[in-house]
Design a protein around this nucleic acid. Structure first.
Lengths: 113, 113
DNA sequence: TTTACATTTCCAATATTATGGAAATATTAC
DNA sequence: GTAATATTTCCATAATATTGGAAATGTAAA
């Protein structure tokens, strides 16, 4: 992943309305949620919602699909994983003992987590 | 984690210089890197660097420690993990089959990853 | 084909963030 | 002390993002 893409994805998530939208979509899974339902649940007016959905879509963090009059959005889990991988890449230069992150601690030597 | 904290952390990372700083520090592990070295490696002037380091510190993504005249910064792995957990919380409502994320697929039933 | 509904685009006002020179502060070496 | 080095604060300028009403667009049901 190039840094420009990572910055765009992070910027897309770095706003309260958009982060709320994204989390609802992550929780909803493949089924997704219609734009109008998102707006109603979060109390965001249509124009503002559309602006935020466009920002998240452009960052590839969510994907729209059309069903009749509705536009259903769902999270792009692959892209989210790529972003997380980018953030943790080469963590502690591959030496887990240099790292306090539980996730990265190799416990075969019996070290405490 | 409260949403305000998550937004602050994401906003801190959503800028090219700061994301570069953070990644260098993640790779450096506990040892960390001095402010001046970061500035030199990334070609960022002192005032600008200090502004960005303050932003990352305030979001608790990095931690400074003083060693003589130097200020050594290191990544806060625990906070990074908390952020990632917040992003992926309740993913697909706990039903991995609703989710295309390899990381979240439970393979005990022999489903393809 | 008219009507209703869902969503997006347009636009202007407002708010927030980034940049870096110069000066101030802090620490160590001489 | 005085000089040298590291980092931060101050500040003005410039750039970018957010908001939501009103109008436009797209879709489907009556």
């Amino acid at each position: 992943m190039k840094i420009e893409l990572a910055v765009e994805a992070l910027a897309a998530l770095a706003q309260e309305s958009r982060l709320s939208i994204f989390r609802l979509l992550v929780q909803a899974g493949k089924a997704g949620i219609a734009a109008g339902v998102l707006g109603e649940q979060l109390g965001i007016p249509p124009a503002t919602l559309s602006f935020h959905l466009k920002t998240l879509s452009h960052a590839k963090l969510i994907k729209p699909r059309t069903e009749g009059r509705f536009v259903i959005y769902s999270a792009n889990f692959a892209e989210m994983d790529r972003l997380i991988e980018y953030l943790t890449e080469h963590c502690c230069a591959g030496d887990a003992s240099q790292c306090t992150s539980a996730k990265n601690v190799d416990n075969r030597n019996g070290n405490p987590k």
